Simulated assay, not measured.
Amino acid sequence: MARKLSAIGFDADDTLWHNERLFQMTQSYFAELLADYTDRETLMERLLAAERRNLGHYGFGVKGFTLSMIETAIEVTQGKVAASVIERLLEAGRDMLRHPVELLPHARDAVQFARQEHVIILITKGDLLDQERKLAQSGLGDLFHGIEIVSDKTPQQYSEIFAHHATGVAQGLMIGNSLRSDVFPMIEAGGRGVFVPHGHEWALEHAAPPTDHPRYHALADLSGFATLIRKIEHG
């Protein structure tokens, strides 16, 4: 019997290893540094607006986030932010880039199971150097048949990636913690999308799940991954 899936794509941040909670910890530190100028809620709204504005300039990742914090600090203090605060924000960004990688539960098992009978591809967006560092530290790098670090995730990107590495997006599956980046564009491209929530979600990635779509699947965590793949292949 021909397999329904030829390739499986894995998101990286907050799917295979923790990431967003580090951003939230840094945001708390940011709020402490600017507490004399504004309340946390207002500061986070201004920071989110800056991140949204800057995505097209800086892309996704720690470097763009750090620059957005600095921009927000300048705005909320009307240009009065101390150089020492800017220095602390830059150091906070460097700390994020040095932070050790912590795999999520069942991540290694899921990747190892997938590669037994499928082409597996890591598809992640963000800063190239930081993503390469995290992949190397994760110990998962050698398991993947392909690594794709992209500036954004779109239906066209998924179509091209699954055509390049396997038999096309129609026989592909993408699993990740972001409906907006990992699930919606994959389904639009003609493949299957699997949502596995992390618990810490970046506001710019929030979306409502397409629960009625036949190519949409959801898991509570990666422990159910092997069962889902068997169901898709043999169901």
Rank of each mutant, 00 (worst) to 15 (best):
N19M: 13
N19Y: 15
N19I: 15
E20M: 03
R21I: 15
F23N: 02
Y29C: 09
F30R: 01
L34S: 01
D36R: 10
D36H: 06
D36Y: 05
D39P: 03
T42W: 04
E45V: 08
L47Y: 00
A49M: 00
A49F: 03
A49D: 00
R52P: 01
R53F: 00
R53H: 01
F60C: 13
F65C: 08
F65S: 02
L67M: 02
L67D: 04
M69V: 07
M69I: 12
I70R: 01
I70D: 03
T72S: 01
V76G: 10
V76Q: 04
T77H: 10
T77K: 09
Q78E: 15
G79C: 03
K80P: 14
A82N: 15
S84Y: 13
I86L: 04
E87D: 13
R88D: 09
L89D: 07
E91M: 11
A92W: 11
G93P: 11
G93Y: 01
R94D: 14
R94K: 15
E102Y: 01
R108D: 04
D109M: 15
A110P: 05
V111H: 06
Q112K: 11
Q112I: 11
F113Y: 14
F113W: 14
A114R: 04
E117F: 06
H118Q: 02
I120R: 00
